[in-house]
Nucleic acid binder design. Structure first.
Lengths: 255, 255
DNA sequence: TAGTGGTCTAGACCACCTC
DNA sequence: AGGTGGTCTAGACCACTAC
């Protein structure tokens, strides 16, 4: 067992106290100067230790207030039910799910036309840089930024379904609108990844250090080709996804 | 536009250069003292800026060597094909998938019996603290730690399928072994989450700061009840998961 | 041995919050 | 006003890697 640097000893001691629930009543941590005295370390050394815990997502800090242990409430999204292939819902189930959970949903929305980014062009099987329609949602739950969702449609789709490019909402939902115009979505390809947020994402989702984002890319297919690509960026600390595969009768019984 | 602190200016400038590919040929960054001179900032201030980029997962540092921009190669795991419900493969497809990708798989393995942790007990529908069998894999690809996989089986399952508790490998795969003993897995419930690694996970997966882990929890169901719970922890920088849902004929055509 | 990053200190000043 | 964290400095010494 080699000797740990002092700032790690500080972090380890505080981490142990946090997971043991030492700060459960009042989530505030002692101030930097108190910790500095307690650990017989300079304020900067204590700060290094606290910075570690922040980057682990265990605590947050705010100027003038102090350090607090982070709370954990998560929202679960059922990706395999999110859009039902047989009965496409109104838009997607975001509003319903959030309301059912007793929370208050809110979103801002915009539509634009732009050259396809590389990842999108690849998934939609169009030339990189060819025009695509972007429908972008910034979603909140109880006024906390929750996720961003960017859906891209290829230009060829707009000719027969012009309302996709309209800046307004599509009441019946885009999936149903497309189905009504003969474009039926019969399959999805979902990709899930994680990484630390870019500064832009950190701004939109208001996440501090130590919170990764969950990236969900869903490419929707008509019988012959892809018709949309939706990239959703979740706050990793507030969201979890799930999939149901096969027969889950055994899941609902007892309990 | 308010004035940014100096260490953020440093981070922003370097981030811009990194994403623009300024260091693509030689991935090494200038040394701290060079940057200190260039930005007319103290070494500590430059270090704060670099620490930001490390925590964003953009660069790594190593003592005596310097800072390097991180490389991005990712491995894709098809979760909806990972175990085929009709034709369970030998164990899971980890070995096959990795070998097919031209990489060299390697794993260590152990089996133990322990009281069920809360998350596992809940998913297996057994009493918290009741005995479960844990089969644990630590997986490498080309000698790089890749993921850990912990599969828990409830004690009642062992009576009819005692080899689950044996410390050795099960040649034909646990799924097939169980199927042969009348325990057929007919559905899954998958949960996916992300967070920063615990110190223990950081050690096992050898991830530095700025790399989140991807958590994949699969609960497998027999017709009447859950029979296993598998918790896989991936390095977020090296892995991506995907699901195929519905009909994806349009995916394979042209390109 | 020389150069790199890693740790630690002591102190200064600023920005924000609460009373 | 007084306490909190945020920024920044200058300098010391250590640990690791290269040559």
């Amino acid at each position: 067992m080699s000797k740990q640097p002092k700032y790690r000893q500080v972090a380890d001691a505080l981490r142990r106290e946090i997971v043991n629930g030492a700060f459960d009543s009042d989530r505030r941590l002692p101030s930097e100067s108190e910790l500095s005295a307690r650990f017989d370390a300079s304020r900067n050394t204590v700060r290094s230790g606290l910075a570690l815990l922040v980057s682990e997502g265990l605590i947050t800090s705010s100027q003038g207030l102090g350090y607090e242990v982070r709370s954990h409430e998560v929202f679960e999204l059922n990706a395999s039910r999110f859009e039902n292939l047989q009965f496409p819902q109104n838009g997607d189930s975001y509003n319903t799910d959030v309301t059912n959970a007793g929370r208050r949903p809110h979103q801002t929305f915009r539509v634009e036309m732009l050259p396809a980014p590389a990842e999108v062009a690849e998934r939609l099987k169009v030339e990189q840089g060819s025009k695509v329609v972007l429908r972008f949602c910034h979603r909140y739950v109880d006024d906390v930024p929750w996720s961003t969702q960017a859906t891209y449609y290829p230009a060829w789709l707009i000719e027969g379904s012009p309302r996709l490019a309209d800046p307004g909402d599509i009441e019946e939902g885009t999936t149903r609108y497309l189905a009504g115009r003969g474009i039926e979505q019969i399959g999805y390809f979902d990709e899930i990844a994680t990484r630390m947020p870019t500064p832009e994402e950190a701004r939109l989702l208001e996440v501090g250090a130590g919170v990764p984002v969950l990236l969900w890319t869903r490419t929707g297919y008509a019988p012959d080709r892809p018709i949309r690509c939706t990239i959703t960026t979740f706050r990793g600390d507030l969201n979890r996804m799930n999939y149901e595969i096969g027969d889950l009768a055994g899941r609902s019984e007892n309990t």
